[in-house]
Design a protein around this nucleic acid. Structure first.
Length: 334
DNA sequence: TTTGCCGGGGA
DNA sequence: TCCCCGGCAAA
């Protein structure tokens, strides 16, 4: 294995700096074995535990990556900065599409299990955590049926503000403002594995609003039955169950004071918003919902289906007159 | 790119 | 007043 790695490294164009080869050799000779035997942190007290040693990714849908090539990438990146290795590993192994790195964003994986806020830096780590701690499975086995995917979510953490956030973060109240977050009610006690998927709501509903912007990757997984490895014991309703879990996302934000962009707080990367909101301060969180009014008196587009959407262009005679005249729909009002 | 609809204008 | 449509902005 080590010889293969070294051979790959010697031919890899990525190793441009000869001075780094020493550490590479060092890592290859003694470090890789340790890094492969994933020792996940089983601390239950800390909400922010950093699992830097875990680099095996047993059950991700990533495209197959050559082991040798992956190792060479991994080792060469390790030689640069040890703190970066988990991210670069994640960068290489987790995402088929290279993630845009903005400032110092870091992708973490947060356990969504009730009363468990464990955050790990690798998906395999969080999967193993869920497998062993919550699902009661053998932690040594890398076998995964994919169920763990439903119990953790990917979050992006701005490392610039993480240290600040850590000082304020408490296990019981991770929010700084706004309504108390509703953590995912997975009803694990009733019947854990089966209905949990069905009940699993879009993750943004459970987003702790202080530091995390939870991506809705699981919505994709939920609507894509292919992504769930088939299991012999899996009941035949799995697809029905999965499709039910996809609710219309805008429902989540009803009753909240402003557009959804306003409930996102500041310390997380501004992925969706253009220039206007990037410099907003921490105290400037929820009550800026009127900022959109600066664009004019145009009322925001409603969520309801309109005549055009419902009937289509070919049945335009069924539209309400307002829709026919390109006015605000009167039939499907909001 | 599609969709909702404002604002304006013709009949 | 009815009807149509250019064009803007949100999705």
């Amino acid at each position: 294995m080590a010889a293969t790695v070294l051979t790959t490294l010697s031919t890899s164009p990525l190793v441009l700096n000869p001075s780094s080869s020493a550490s590479v050799v060092d890592l290859a000779s003694k470090g890789w074995k340790e890094s492969l035997s994933a020792s996940y942190s089983s601390s239950t007290s800390g909400n922010w535990s950093w699992d830097a040693s875990d680099q095996s990714v047993p059950s991700t849908p990533s495209p197959p990556l050559s082991n040798d090539a992956g190792k060479s990438f991994l080792l060469s990146s390790q030689s640069d900065d040890n703190n970066e290795d988990t991210e670069s590993t994640h960068f290489l192994f987790e995402d088929p599409i290279p993630r845009k790195r903005k400032n110092s964003m870091k992708v973490m994986f947060k356990c969504l299990w009730k009363n468990c806020e464990k955050v790990l830096s690798t998906s395999s780590g969080i999967q193993r955590h869920i497998r062993t701690v919550h699902l009661g499975r053998n932690g040594d086995s890398d076998y995964s049926d994919g169920e763990e995917d439903f119990y953790y979510s990917e979050i992006e953490v701005n490392m610039d503000t993480l240290s600040e956030g850590l000082s304020n973060l408490t296990p019981t109240s991770p929010t700084t403002s706004g309504p108390a977050p509703v953590f995912p009610v997975l009803t694990c006690d009733a019947s854990r594995s089966e209905p949990a998927r069905m009940i699993h709501t879009p993750l943004s509903q459970s987003a702790p609003s202080a530091l995390c912007h939870i991506r809705t990757d699981h919505a994709y997984q939920a609507t894509t039955p292919v992504s769930i490895p088939s299991m012999p014991s899996e009941p035949p309703h799995s697809e029905d169950r999965i499709s039910v879990s996809w609710q219309s996302p805008p429902v989540i934000y009803k009753g909240l004071p402003g557009p959804m962009t306003q409930i996102r707080t500041v310390s997380i990367g501004e992925k969706r918003q253009p220039v206007n909101h990037t410099t907003v301060s921490k105290a400037h969180t929820n009550n800026t919902s009127a900022s959109k009014a600066t664009t004019g008196t145009r009322k925001p587009r409603g969520e309801a289906k309109k005549c055009r959407k419902v009937y289509g262009m070919e049945k335009r005679d069924l539209w309400c007159t307002a829709c026919r005249w390109k006015k605000a729909c009167q039939r499907f009002t909001d």
